[in-house]
């Protein structure tokens, strides 16, 4: 069971990306389950994901990188027992720290878990504006620093110059991450991302 995080700040496109990735993996014959974590008490994203016929578990009312770390481990164990997925895609809340979510994955006992890449979505439209906010900026940099792959999302909505500027900025934060440009909405760049997950 390979576990992959699709992290990123609020509104960066995680749910859209996770739906597109899950469908692509399913088309390749892989069994996929999704864990969705939301800050609020009600799981809007999980309801949306389930409309696509995808197997989903929601963990709400907190963040799986801290107070709900153990819930994440239990959910992984339950999915392994009941569904035996090839891949589990985790959508943490928009304010989660990817490295801490990785710790939660490690708490799941007795599972043959392969930790897949940590993917962090960077909002192509708002990312630079968010980075210039003192508090948000520090937080988002921390998310980016914890990534194996940073995907600049919403590439369909921005100019090439803006995308290049984002890449430069991301490289200063995380020189080792692979950087991709994608549009989760219309599928641009997704196949390359799927190849990095498989």
């Amino acid at each position: 069971m390979k576990v992959v995080q699709i992290a990123g700040f609020l509104g960066s496109g995680k749910t859209t990306a996770i739906i597109a990735l899950s469908r692509s993996l399913a088309e390749k014959g892989k069994k996929v389950a999704i864990i969705v974590n939301e800050i609020g008490d009600v799981p809007v994203d999980a309801k949306v994901v389930s409309e696509y016929g995808l197997k989903v578990r929601d963990i709400g009312g907190g963040c799986i990188c801290c107070e709900l770390l153990v819930s994440l481990a239990y959910t992984l164990e339950e999915l392994a027992r009941s569904y035996s997925p090839d891949y589990v895609l985790i959508e943490p809340s928009g304010v989660s720290i990817p490295s801490s979510v990785k710790d939660g994955i490690g708490l799941a006992k007795g599972l043959n878990v392969e930790k897949g890449p940590v993917i962090v979505l960077f909002d192509g439209e708002r990312g630079q504006e968010q980075l210039s906010d003192e508090d948000l900026g520090k937080f988002i940099k921390r998310q980016i620093a914890g990534a194996d792959i940073v995907t600049i999302n919403k590439i369909d909505a921005i100019e090439d110059g803006a995308a290049r500027s984002h890449e430069g900025l991301i490289r200063t934060i995380n020189p080792n991450a692979k950087i991709l440009r994608i549009s989760a909405k219309n599928g641009l760049g997704l196949e390359e991302l799927v190849k990095l997950i498989i």
Partner: peptide, 23 residues
């Protein structure tokens, strides 16, 4: 850190003042 019933969950490690409500 305790979880608040109104939907806001203060993030343990960061001070980014995000508040949420859902129903």
């Amino acid at each position: 850190m305790p979880h608040e019933d109104r939907g806001e969950v203060p993030h343990e490690e960061e001070h980014i003042s995000i508040s949420g409500y859902g129903s």
